[in-house]
Design a protein around this nucleic acid. Sequence first.
DNA 1: TATGAATGAGTCTTCATTCAT
DNA 2: GATGAATGAAGACTCATTCAT
Lengths: 186, 186, 186, 186
Amino acid sequence: MKEKEQKILDTSLKLFVEKGFHGTSTAEIAKTAGVATGTLFHYFKTKEELIDRLYIYTKESILEEVQGDYDENNPFKENVKSLWLKFVCLGIKDPYKFNFIMTFHCSPYITSFTKGRIEEKFVELLEIYKKGFEEGEIKEIYDELLMDYFWGNILNTIMHFEQNPEKMNKENVDLSFELFWDGISR
Amino acid sequence: MKEKEQKILDTSLKLFVEKGFHGTSTAEIAKTAGVATGTLFHYFKTKEELIDRLYIYTKESILEEVQGDYDENNPFKENVKSLWLKFVCLGIKDPYKFNFIMTFHCSPYITSFTKGRIEEKFVELLEIYKKGFEEGEIKEIYDELLMDYFWGNILNTIMHFEQNPEKMNKENVDLSFELFWDGISR
Amino acid sequence: MKEKEQKILDTSLKLFVEKGFHGTSTAEIAKTAGVATGTLFHYFKTKEELIDRLYIYTKESILEEVQGDYDENNPFKENVKSLWLKFVCLGIKDPYKFNFIMTFHCSPYITSFTKGRIEEKFVELLEIYKKGFEEGEIKEIYDELLMDYFWGNILNTIMHFEQNPEKMNKENVDLSFELFWDGISR
Amino acid sequence: MKEKEQKILDTSLKLFVEKGFHGTSTAEIAKTAGVATGTLFHYFKTKEELIDRLYIYTKESILEEVQGDYDENNPFKENVKSLWLKFVCLGIKDPYKFNFIMTFHCSPYITSFTKGRIEEKFVELLEIYKKGFEEGEIKEIYDELLMDYFWGNILNTIMHFEQNPEKMNKENVDLSFELFWDGISR
DNA sequence: TATGAATGAGTCTTCATTCAT
DNA sequence: GATGAATGAAGACTCATTCAT
């Protein structure tokens, strides 16, 4: 990716999260990114294409950082915690990306084509964990609810520590995981 | 409250949720509400005053519907479930109000004065439950995390059933509560 | 019609003729008309609606001024000349309107609905002359060609005197009519 | 002329006629012509130089095709008709060139230097016919009116058959010429 | 020669807000 | 109280033109 294109994406991630889609003007994005307005529209035909591609970019970069870690020799809970922790740490370290996904995954500006394309990759990632779920360590829950519970909990945890940074320490993060795990485990 | 004022509040609730603050023009609100633009500004000095007062109105109307139900004779879990259920049912029945709160409780348009004023009332409502928490039925968690876990879970549940309406039945709602309860209970 | 609306129409007539549709900015129209840009868009939803309504307005105002003059007692040539002269004089007196029609009657900005609506009225006007045409004073020409010859000649004459104002006198105008009349008469 | 230069001229002729000067962007011209925007500006310093040179190119190519045909042995009317017909046929075969001249001969984008330079050549072409005019076969008309009547008639005829292609046959073309000839002849 | 990324002034249009009626 | 015409600043997007490659 070209340097300016990258700069525009990074800048709009920040601004869209802070001020919303309509609350952020393309002029402001361009200025903050240090490019001309024309340059923004050179890379992104419209503001909507910008947010759409930003969505892909953001979700893919999250996925990349979380990739492949399942270790069959470890207990299932360990594996789940490791994944949960990765998401949470990532979210705390880089809250803009998570906030962006949270805010815009329901937004009409993201085309359903884009949403679908990305959703697939997530399902793929979680496929490995499926066996553990089926082996009876956790309650009998249908897929969608499990998914939403998992995600909701992660986002909730991230937001909690974002707003209460003084509370963030290993103990409290572990506690948060226990709230989650005791909820789903039998 | 005057009829037109009420109509403007109801209309903006819907529109702000669907299209965001900047995505909704005062002209559209007025037109949809069936009043003149001038009338909107007669009741609300600015667009920001409108959303600020809408926030109060919405949260108060939620609080009202959830009020006073604690029964000391029932087991603590019952009381908590009853409150949890009230919120969830309300959220499913009237998703706009919940979505609005969810979306705008972090928004800079809502003055911190307003946020504070409302927060107090919530704390008040939950005061009654404090005793139960302290009696050791649940894990030892600091207040803020408990609060966020409680709220996060409710919102998560509402959103889940909003997006999977075919899954909504007593069994699954109970299941959702169990996920929550087993998480916090010892 | 409101005063400002009228002012906008008059101004855009002049500017569209002088600088073309794309060559004239809405800002310039508004400024020249002495109104705010917002006011222009209050009366005309888009620039295209403006030119479309301007087309109607212009053609109707021409038609009005040329209306009803046929006198059965006069020779046919007299009647035709009287009409021809009215158009020519009008075009010389108020060249913007004629130039506008000339320039934009083929333009894609004028909707075909508008074009059709106006065309009808012209046909109506000329209906009275039909009898004369049929009585053999003029050559046997099919309607469309007759129409185009008539119009083409009028526009041509107007443009000629517009560009050679020093040549404009009764004698030369009469001469121009003879060029036309001797062309179609038997 | 270089191939790309030629391609740019041909493309802009078409686009300027269809969408006007301001309605056609240099980017569109370049893209349609199959060259880069930079290439367009390599051959034509500015957009205005492009249209100016296009005007010359177009008028010269018309003149070339109409050149030298006067035959002293034929009757004057024959000679005039032959010229008239050449223009009309050319205009029907290649309406873009005629439309372009028609639309832009009054345009401020064409420098008066260019206009003058071309006008001379036309006058030259018509010089040969002057004798016939003076010999009394036609009415006594001053030069400018004769010129405008001649041109106006040709353009009018071309536009008529362009818009009524089903009417175009030898008979009707001859009829059109008669309208013209009977107008100017004594 | 030829390219196309980069520019920023300029375009059409929207919007919160005011005010005379 | 209620209206909606009027405003002009601001927004998304376009465009002629330049310049490094």
